[in-house]
Design a protein around this nucleic acid. Structure first.
Length: 560
RNA sequence: UGGGGCGUAGCCAAGCGGUAAGGCAUCGGGUUUUGAUCCCGUGUACCGCAGGUUCGAAUCCUGCCGCCCCAGCCA
C-alpha cells in the first residue's frame, strides 16, 4: 500500500505504530469460537486480521476461543480451518486454542486472588443477577466479596478439583459493583462446568470466561492489535483492567470495528443454527446460506468474497450492504474465468422443417468471447432443438427481439431461423415451434452477413443431456431479517427452484465446483455434494445482469 | 431516565479548518452472433439538526435529534 492510498482507520493506527517505532512487527489473530460455521461477517474479520499482518510482513494466529465446552465441537473446528484456508489465508504454525493456555490462565487467576482482585462468590446465578443492579441502578456487593485471600485460594483450589457442582461457586473479579459499565460490576472469571471439552477432554472442571481468557491469550501470543467488533467496545475497560492487574510482558491494544451485515441474509450463528436445526436449509453448507461453506458450495470464488469485504470497508458505522454488491463481485470474478456453455433451463421444442431429417452438423463455439486463447468446442446441430421458453412470445411487444410468430432470430453459433408455425396442446399452451432455417447464415462460414436483432441459445434434442439445475434466490424476503421478531415470517418461500434442464453434451465431463457460464443465463457449477457424471446436478451461482428483465419489471410496475 | 458507540447521495466510503474522492446501484449513449462483457457519459449530497468560533467548518465548540450495543455462570 502506498502512502497516497487511503487507509481505513485501523490500518492508519497500525501504520502509525510502525512509523513511530511503537511496534517493530504487527501480530494479529482471528479468534472464532468453534460453535458454528463461519459466515460472511467473519470473512471481513479474517481478511482484516490476516490482511493487515500480510501487508506489514507481520504474523497472524488462528486461535480457537474454546472456553465454553458443550457448545463447541470438533466438527466446527475442522470446518473453520477448512474455510479460512479456502479463503486464501495461511496461519502456518500459529494455530492455537484458548484452551492451550488453561494452565497459565489458572495461574493468573490465582495471582488475582492473591492480590485481592478476585474472589470466590457462593451466590447462585439468580442472586448474582439480582445483586448486579440494572442499567440505571448500581449493583450491591456480594456478601462473599470480602472473603480472605486464604479462603478464596482454598475455594478456588477445590473448584478446580471438582469438589463443587456446576453453579455452586464462581470466581469473580473484584472491581466495582456501582460502575455504570455493567462489564465492570465484578464480572465472572471462572465458572464450574463438569463437561467434556472438545480439546482438553476432562482435564478441567472449571472454565475461564471470554473476557479473561481472551485478553490473556492475546497477551500470551504477543498480539499487538486485537481487532474485534463494536459490541465489545465496552468490554475494553475490562480488557485493560486485566492488563493493568496482571502486567503481562506484552500489552495488546483492542480496537473495534463495525460488523458487516448483508441485506436479505442473517449473520448470527444462533439464527443460522436455527435454520439448520429446523431443516429450513439442507445444512450449514446449503448454497443459500451466507456461510463460507455455503457460498463455496454455491460456487462463489474466494477472490470474490475478499473483493466484497474490501469494498465494504472497515469503519465503525453500522452497515447493511446490498446483495447486489456481493453478486457483482461474484460476476466480476467469474466473468473472465469461466468458459461458456449452452444450456436450456425451461425447454421448448423447435423443429426445423427444412433441415434434413438425419443430418448433424458440428458448429464451432467459442469457449470465451473475450479470450480466444481458450479455444473452441463443437456443438452438434440437428433438425430438432430445445430453446428457452422465455425466448418465444406469441404476442411480443415491439422491443422484444427474440422469437415470435413470423419473426427471425439467430441461433447462437448456428443459423438464423424464422418461426413459421406455433403448435399448442389442448390447454392452449405452446408446446412446439415449426421453424425454417436459412442455409446461408451458418455461423462463421456463412455466405450471408444478414443481421437480426436477437440471438438465442439452444441445445440439440438428440444430443442433450438432462440435469437437475437448482435456481437459488435470497433466503429472506426482508432486507434486514436480523430485525424480524420471527425469522419464519420473513422467509422467502421461493428461495429454491429445481428444474430439469437440457445441457450441451460437453457438459457431461464438467467437474463439480468448476464454474461455467450458461450463455445468457448465468454462472453455474456442479454441486459438490451431489453432482456426478451420470447424474449431473448444477447450482446456479448467480444470474447474468439482465436489462430485459429489468425493463419487463418496470413495465409491470407501470401497469400496476 | 446509566454507560459506550455511530450519523457524508439509494448502498458502501474518502475527507483530519481552505471551500465535498472513489466504488456499487441508477439513468442516458456506443460496440456486440450472450438484451452479458466492454467503452463513454450521467449525481445541485441543506456533509443528522440548531447555534457558536473563524476571513473561511463536513472538519473545532455547545446544545438537540435519530440509530446501534450493554443488566449470560455466551462469545
Amino acid at each position: 500500500m502506498s502512502d497516497t492510498e487511503t487507509r481505513d482507520f485501523i490500518r492508519q493506527i497500525i501504520h502509525d505504530d510502525l512509523e513511530s517505532g511503537k511496534h517493530a512487527e504487527i501480530v494479529t489473530r482471528f479468534p472464532p469460537e468453534p460453535n458454528g460455521y463461519l459466515h460472511i461477517g467473519h470473512v471481513m474479520s479474517i481478511c482484516l486480521n490476516f490482511g493487515v499482518a500480510a501487508e506489514t510482513a507481520g504474523r497472524s494466529y488462528l486461535r480457537f476461543d474454546d472456553t465454553n465446552p458443550g457448545k463447541e465441537s470438533a466438527e466446527y473446528v475442522e470446518a473453520i480451518e477448512r474455510d479460512v484456508r479456502w479463503l486464501g489465508f495461511d496461519w502456518q504454525d500459529r494455530l492455537t486454542h484458548a484452551s492451550d493456555y488453561f494452565e497459565q490462565l489458572y495461574a493468573a487467576a490465582i495471582s488475582l486472588v492473591e492480590k485481592g482482585a478476585a474472589y470466590v462468590d457462593s451466590l447462585s446465578a439468580d442472586e448474582i443477577r439480582e445483586y448486579r443492579g440494572t442499567l440505571t441502578e448500581p449493583g450491591r456487593n456480594s456478601p462473599y466479596r470480602d472473603r480472605s485471600v486464604e479462603e478464596n485460594l482454598q475455594l478456588l483450589t477445590r473448584m478446580r478439583a471438582g469438589e463443587f457442582a456446576d453453579g455452586e461457586q464462581i470466581l469473580r473479579a473484584k472491581i466495582d459493583m456501582a460502575s455504570p459499565n455493567m462489564n465492570l460490576r465484578d464480572p465472572a472469571l471462572y465458572r464450574i462446568r463438569h463437561v467434556q471439552h472438545q480439546h482438553t477432554g476432562d482435564a478441567w472442571s472449571i472454565y475461564p470466561m471470554y473476557d479473561f481468557a481472551h485478553t490473556l491469550s492475546d497477551a500470551f501470543e504477543g498480539i499487538t492489535h486485537s481487532l474485534c467488533t463494536l459490541e465489545f467496545e465496552d468490554h475494553r475497560p475490562l480488557y485493560e483492567w486485566f492488563l493493568e492487574q496482571l502486567e503481562p510482558v506484552s500489552r495488546p491494544r483492542q480496537i473495534e470495528f463495525s460488523r458487516l451485515n448483508l441485506a436479505y441474509a442473517v449473520t448470527s450463528k444462533r439464527k443460522l443454527n436455527a435454520l439448520v436445526e429446523e431443516g429450513i436449509v439442507e445444512g450449514w453448507n446449503d448454497p443459500r446460506m451466507p456461510t463460507i461453506a455455503g457460498m463455496r458450495r454455491r460456487g462463489y470464488p474466494a477472490a470474490a468474497l475478499r473483493d466484497f469485504v474490501s469494498r465494504a470497508g472497515v469503519t465503525k458505522k453500522d452497515k447493511l450492504i446490498e446483495m447486489g454488491v456481493l453478486e457483482n463481485c461474484v460476476r466480476e470474478s467469474l466473468g473472465d474465468e469461466s468458459e461458456r456453455r449452452m444450456a436450456v433451463l425451461r425447454p421448448l421444442k423447435v423443429v426445423l422443417t427444412n433441415y434434413p431429417q438425419d443430418k448433424v452438423e458440428l458448429m464451432q463455439a467459442m469457449n470465451h468471447p473475450g479470450r480466444p486463447e481458450l479455444g473452441t468446442r463443437e456443438l452438434p446441430f440437428s433438425r430438432e432443438l430445445w430453446i428457452e421458453q422465455d425466448d418465444f412470445m406469441e404476442d411480443a411487444p415491439r422491443k422484444f427481439f427474440r422469437l415470435k410468430p413470423g419473426g427471425e432470430v439467430r441461433l447462437r453459433f448456428g443459423y438464423i431461423i424464422r418461426c413459421d408455425e406455433v403448435i399448442k396442446d389442448d390447454a392452449g399452451d405452446v408446446i412446439e415451434l415449426r421453424c425454417s432455417y436459412d442455409e446461408d447464415t451458418r455461423s462463421g462460414s456463412g455466405s450471408s452477413d444478414r443481421k437480426v436483432k436477437g440471438t438465442i441459445h439452444w441445445v440439440s434434442c438428440a444430443h442433450a443431456i438432462d440435469a437437475d439445475v437448482r435456481l437459488y434466490d435470497r433466503l429472506f424476503s426482508e432486507a434486514n431479517p436480523n430485525a424480524a421478531d420471527d425469522l419464519h415470517s420473513v422467509l422467502n418461500e421461493n428461495s429454491l427452484e429445481v428444474v430439469v434442464a437440457k445441457l450441451e453434451p460437453s457438459l457431461s465431463t464438467q467437474e463439480a465446483g468448476e464454474p461455467v457460464q450458461f450463455e445468457r443465463l448465468g454462472y453455474f457449477c456442479g454441486d459438490s455434494e451431489t453432482h456426478a457424471g451420470s447424474t449431473p446436478v448444477f447450482n446456479r451461482i448467480v444470474t447474468l445482469r439482465d436489462s430485459w428483465a429489468k425493463l419487463e419489471k418496470q413495465a409491470m410496475q407501470q401497469q400496476g
